[in-house]
Each structure stands twice: as C-alpha cells, then as structure tokens.
Design a protein around this nucleic acid. Structure first.
Length: 289
DNA sequence: CACTTGACCTGTCCGC
DNA sequence: TGCGGACAGGTCAAGT
C-alpha cells in the first residue's frame, strides 16, 4: 500500500475535500471491501456528516457527527478519490480529468454526498476495506491495541525507537521495520530507503545493531518519511491522492526499484534480494552484513 | 513467546 | 500473441 506518507497525503486531501459533507448514498460491488454493507449503512452512515479525517499507522479514520467512524485500510492497491464540482473544486483542478472516469472496474465502494459529489474507494486487489465502527470501540480493535508508536510524533525519541526493537531481537532489521507492532507506518519502500540512508544491511540482526546505528536509523526513518510527505508520497504503481494525483517521491528514491543502477553515494550497482518475503533493494558496498 | 511462511486478489511483465 | 510463473506499496492466520 500506501505506507505512512501516502496515507497521510490522502488524509490531508480528504480533510480539505469532504469535511462538512453529509452522506446521501453508498453502494458496493464486493462484500469484503465493505463488510457493513448494506445492512448497517442506512442506519449508521446515511445522513451522517464528516467532522474530521485522521490517520493512525496506515489506517484512515473518517470521523462522523454520530457515534460511528468510517475506518479504512488501503492495503496494497487501495485508493480514496473524491470527485466533485462544488466550490472547493473549481474548474482547472487536476482532478477534473477524473470526472466521468470513475467509477471504473476497480471501484469497490461508491459514496455520494448530499451535494451530489462522490467519494470512490478503488482497490484493484481487493485486500483493502472500509468499515463502520462505533467510535468508542476503535481503541479496542486488535490492530489499534498492538500497533507501535507514530515515528513522526514530536515526543518520539531515538531512545524510544531503539527500545521498541528489543521486541524482535532475533529477526533481521528489515522484518522488524515492517512489523507494525514495533513502529507504525513503515512499509517496503521506506524500509529500504531508511536502511540505505543509515548504511545498514537489511539482513543485519536487530541484536547486532549498535546504539549509534539505531540513532542513524531513527534519523533516516524520520527524514525519509518527512521528505515523502512533502513530495505527496510514492506512486510506484497504483497510488494516487484524494484528488487522483500521483506522488513524486519515487523521483527522489535512492534504492527502491533502482536495482542495476549506481548507488547515488558510492556508484556501486544497487542489488535486489529477498528479505522477509519482500523484494529488497540495497547497496552492497555501503550496507554490509 | 519470537519468528517465518503462505494466503488473500487482480494485473502486469518477462521468458519461452 | 499465447502461456506459465514471478512479482506487486500489507496484514493475518497458521506453522515451526
């Protein structure tokens, strides 16, 4: 999916585009994508107004002015795209090009607001979902209880970071970075990019890393995520923001999907291997076991 | 418990 | 252009 920067970008877009709007209709093409539908939709969604949109890890939380929240996970190929023609969405907006193009065959759930505008949940691979949850129950959901701290929180320190990894002492560092119960929000792209920045081989054992290396990794994780948010995330394949636009971080990637190309730091050819079941890109000169 | 692997889906790309 | 297989931004359940 979309990792932390992509989800953050979608959430910021939705906050600009759908806050204050009331749901008028919802339809779905696939039960898995919206397990509540159609049963709970009439009762808990129709007529509800969006008050705020937020993010926790890679989960999107669309808060309503009722006791329910519309929760969503984009997994690998999910998208939330708003298509409207109202005052917040004037002529010339890049999203204009999507009017009439959606829904398409990847559209799993269609929402219509009172003003006639639409929010589409698209998901080619159907791993993602949207769910209506009573707001007070959200903290009790298994994932929410187990998920680790937000790496960009102002009070999340290098010491906090290092201590979280004690949970996975015998795994390799890449698997630990991907483990959402250790740190929230990192996925395959930013794991590789951060490890390159910190000059740490993805297969190094967590227990073998020095405090100094953890400090470097902490800084790199935060720098990479921050830069990517600034660039609107990575559009490796499917990802688009809430206005249907691609992110630009891939233009700044140092190793991800750059196997066979020279390392921007030392010129050595970047290699791709398999670690933790995922394609993994690294510089064999700068990142050694 | 810590850790790894396969399953969930659809689409695309690459080698024959 | 067809076919088979590997692979794709994530998470779970089930296995060791």
């Amino acid at each position: 999916m979309p990792e932390l920067p992509e989800v953050e970008t979608v959430v910021r877009g939705l906050n600009n585009l759908i806050v204050g709007k009331k749901f008028r209709r919802a339809s779905f093409d696939n039960q898995k994508s919206f397990p509540n539908a159609p049963k709970d939709v009439e009762q808990f969604l129709i007529g509800a107004k969006v008050t705020h949109v937020r993010r926790r890890a890679k989960v999107i939380l669309i808060e309503l002015d009722t006791s329910y929240t519309l929760m969503a996970h984009l997994k690998m190929t999910g998208q939330f795209v708003y298509v409207g023609t109202d005052e917040r969405f004037g002529a010339g907006h890049p999203n204009d090009s999507l009017i009439g193009q959606l829904p398409d065959k990847s559209t799993r759930v269609q929402f219509e607001f009172n003003d006639g505008t639409h929010l589409y949940f698209n998901d080619q691979r159907k791993f993602g979902w949207v769910r209506l949850i009573p707001t007070p129950e959200i903290p009790n959901i298994d994932f929410m209880k187990k998920v680790g701290p937000e790496p960009l929180d102002a009070n999340f320190t290098a010491v906090n970071f290092r201590e979280r990894f004690q949970r996975r002492p015998r795994s390799n560092i890449k698997a630990a970075l991907l483990d959402q119960t250790v740190i929230a929000g990192i996925g395959n792209i930013y794991a590789d990019e951060s490890l390159w920045g910190a000059k740490i081989h993805p297969q190094r054992l967590v227990s073998s890393l020095s405090d100094h290396e953890f400090d470097d990794l902490y800084r790199e994780v935060r720098a990479v995520l921050t830069l990517s948010i600034e660039k609107g995330g990575s559009s490796n394949r499917n990802y688009v923001n809430a206005s249907g636009q691609k992110g630009k971080y891939m233009d700044f990637a140092k190793v991800f999907r750059r196997e066979g190309l020279p390392c921007p730091r030392c010129g050595t050819t970047i290699e791709k291997i398999r670690v933790a079941g995922r394609g993994t890109h690294y510089c064999p000169h700068d990142q050694v076991l």
